[in-house]
């Protein structure tokens, strides 16, 4: 009788533990071997935050699962990113080990970002690679279909000219004027601003603003975020916030057709932190 009670207790604990682990609200994962490539929604980004480092990352979702935060983890499959371009144009005729070894530095395998983001795979390249084509290949073991050729070209970089770091703005009175240069005239590029706020009341806010209200103007080089826009975007915002303004120049690439859906984009991102007070 006493042992029966202990068993019941153990089973109850197991049930509680199972339910708690199943209710993890952050994100969950499924193995890649259960998902066909044409059921995958791929998000691939090539991002340069300055001229020194470019990060490539990729995430896969199962299109058959409606939840947005269920990602596919890779087992034997792998992502690789390359800045080499078209291999068929290469023709080394001496020092093969030296030349091909140097070439191999421009190809990197994307690795899971540890426990923090286990379903996000990334690699870093030194430099900003402006105008260079990135090729991201997804290689699958066995009979699964690979997606070897997702490509995107890195757009021109730019400098954020204003506002100054830690400049103070009043939510009641001050518009925030954001300026950057040089502007792009490439119609393949899109400009937008991402504004995120972390406030004294412990809440966080995030909103995207188009850089230009005129669809004919790709890149105006300046954008004024009015107090009205801020109040509207961040309804109920309590001032005394650290606000990060990120200006993004984005270019869409061509996703390998083997994926079910998704996108590959290259982005130049520059950001500045300002302070928002009442």
């Amino acid at each position: 009788m006493r042992y029966q009670k202990q068993w019941r207790c153990l089973v109850a604990w197991w049930l509680v533990a199972t339910v708690v682990s199943g209710c993890d609200l952050s994100s969950s994962t499924i193995g890649e071997d259960r998902v066909a490539t044409d059921d995958m929604d791929a998000t691939i980004r090539v991002e340069a935050r300055d001229a020194t480092v470019t990060e490539v990352w990729a995430q896969l979702r199962d299109m058959n699962i409606s939840s947005d935060n269920v990602y596919v983890t890779l087992g034997q499959d792998s992502f690789r990113a390359s800045t080499v371009g078209d291999f068929s144009t290469l023709d080394f005729s001496d020092d093969l080990f030296g030349n091909v070894g140097d070439l191999s530095h421009d190809i990197k395998r994307l690795h899971a970002e540890g426990d923090i983001d286990p379903e996000k795979y990334s690699a870093r390249f030194p430099g900003d690679y402006v105008g260079r084509t990135f090729t991201v290949s997804f290689t699958r073991k066995g009979k699964r279909t690979s997606a070897p050729l997702s490509t995107v070209v890195m757009p021109e970089g730019f400098t954020l000219d204003g506002p100054a770091t830690d400049q103070m703005f009043s939510l009641a009175n001050d518009d925030i004027v954001v300026t950057w240069s040089p502007v792009t005239t490439n119609s393949a590029d899109a400009m937008f601003l991402n504004v995120s706020a972390s406030c004294a009341n412990g809440r966080s806010y995030e909103h995207d603003f188009e850089a230009s209200g005129d669809p004919l103007v790709v890149d105006p080089g300046t954008r004024t975020i009015t107090t009205g826009e801020l109040n509207l975007a961040f309804a109920g915002i309590i001032p005394n916030c650290n606000v990060t303004i990120m200006v993004v120049r984005s270019r869409l690439g061509i996703l390998d057709p083997a994926y079910g859906q998704g996108s590959i984009t290259a982005r130049q991102e520059r950001q500045v932190r300002v302070l928002l007070v009442p």
């Binding site: 291999f87 290469l90 080394f92 005729s93 093969l96 091909v100």
Partner: peptide
């Protein structure tokens, strides 16, 4: 005689 390959592409010979 050595040959370098990248996938299906021959990228060098020496």
């Amino acid at each position: 005689r050595m040959e370098a390959q990248a996938g299906n592409d021959k990228i060098g010979e020496d």
